[in-house]
């Protein structure tokens, strides 16, 4: 039985067009079963964010996303009081001549509370998928701030009290390792490292995402990308670049790579001029390794 469930997850992902492997399926499976947040790290463009989206689709749950950035604070992540609304409310009630004590009781009501993603996820009527994207971009204070939510699934609002989760949201955190995350946060999560895919996996991804691409072309593109990642580049291209490139080439109805073509379309794959120049210099060698015959 349990094994089937694991296989089901892989199947579920495949249906959504996400090619996973054993490690990914296992982490997602355990994250669901143990009801723990999953911390996903890896280089850019390997499909970290995608995991959250696919999970939401597969579980038919609502998808709530919190994009982290430097300076993100609780008012943007958790909740905020609608200050203007409160003021207006007070003014109106004052004219009715209500007793200040009664007034005070009404002022911190639910309707003045602006729910931000984390609180939304916790109080959601059914289980939701909460994606906290690029957590390493947020400040350390914010990270500590998440601890209460991630371990106890509750949020404390001083004026109201503690709000506990109606359903524990399925939480995914992603990071690029631009900053080392705190031990405390790591301990509350399961961990998954996604690396660049190997040739077979990348090919499978291209096949599933760009079905219109020629079979031979797909192979060559993947082989080329594999070689390209071996080079020391400023920005190593990820899987999303492979897909973009395959799509671009497929839209031109090409059946194989050649040198001129690669040179012309390099901008789809590489986003840094030094990388482009470096790759152009080494292009013949790269193509040779890829197995593309130069037709000169």
């Amino acid at each position: 039985m349990p094994q089937k469930e694991l296989a089901e997850i892989q199947e579920m992902f495949r249906e959504q067009g996400y090619i996973s492997d054993d490690a990914i399926a296992m982490s997602v499976y355990l994250a669901m079963k143990l009801e723990k947040p999953l911390l996903v790290e890896g280089p850019a463009g390997v499909g970290k964010t995608e995991i959250g989206k696919v999970m939401a689709k597969a579980m038919e749950a609502d998808f709530i996303r919190l994009q982290c950035y430097e300076g993100l604070d609780s008012t943007h992540a958790l909740y905020e009081w609608n200050y203007q609304h409160q003021l207006l409310h007070l003014k109106m009630q004052e004219q009715k001549g209500l007793d200040p004590k009664q007034l005070e009781a009404t002022i911190f009501a639910d309707k003045f509370l602006l729910k931000r993603p984390v609180l939304q996820a916790i109080t959601h009527p059914k289980k939701a998928v909460l994606l906290i994207d690029e957590i390493d971009r947020a400040d350390e204070e914010f990270e500590s701030f998440l601890l209460e939510v991630l371990s106890d699934w509750q949020v404390t609002i001083p004026e109201i009290g503690t709000i506990s989760a109606t359903h524990k949201p399925q939480t995914i955190l992603t990071g690029n390792r631009t900053r080392e995350l705190s031990e405390a946060l790591r301990r509350r999560c399961l961990y998954l490292w996604i690396d660049y895919p190997d040739f077979a996996k990348e090919l499978a991804i291209v096949r599933s995402k760009v079905p219109e691409a020629d079979e031979n072309l797909g192979k060559q593109v993947c082989a080329f990308m594999q070689e390209l990642r071996q080079m020391k580049l400023e920005k190593t291209p990820g899987v999303s670049e492979t897909i973009d490139w395959a799509r671009a080439l497929a839209s031109m109805h090409l059946k194989h790579l050649d040198k001129q073509l690669v040179e012309d379309t390099l901008g789809v794959v590489l986003k840094d001029w030094q990388d482009i120049r470096k790759t152009q210099d080494a292009l013949s060698e790269l193509l040779e390794k890829t197995g593309v015959e130069s037709r000169l």
Partner: peptide, 11 residues
């Protein structure tokens, strides 16, 4: 795989 997921906490 299961032990790996649970026990490791960084890269």
């Amino acid at each position: 795989q299961a032990l790996k997921t649970v026990f490791s906490k960084n890269f």
